[in-house]
């Protein structure tokens, strides 16, 4: 049964989970750039320059993730290409 109190508090119910999701995203992004070598941001920009010669993308479309597995470091590149019609002529 829905109480009056439930009704009054309902519209704010989800903010804690929103907070958690936002933090998860930003922290993982900050960790990726923090822990990696200093050249990661530059690498990202140069990749953008190269890819821009062929198609139009934003800096945000390039995701760089560096994962450590023991002594082994894995550089993961995720580049989201746009739809065909956006290609540079």
């Amino acid at each position: 049964m829905m109480s009056i109190l439930d009704y009054l508090t309902r519209r704010r119910k989800k903010t804690a989970s929103v907070a958690k999701e936002r933090l998860q995203l930003i922290l993982s992004r900050e960790h990726a750039t923090d822990s990696g070598p200093d050249y990661l941001p530059a690498l990202q920009k140069e990749l953008l320059a190269v890819i821009s010669k062929y198609t139009h993308i934003d800096l945000d479309d390039i995701k760089i993730n560096l994962e450590k597995d023991g002594d082994c470091e894995i550089l993961e590149l995720n580049i989201a290409l746009p739809e065909k019609q956006n290609e540079v002529a």
Binding site: T9, R12, K13, K14, T15, A16, S17, A19, K20, L23, Q24, L27
Partner: peptide
């Protein structure tokens, strides 16, 4: 405030 979903839980903070 945690019970009404307005505040991060202890588990959330620990996980983060």
């Amino acid at each position: 405030r945690v019970e009404t979903g307005e505040m991060l839980t202890i588990e959330d903070i620990q996980e983060l």
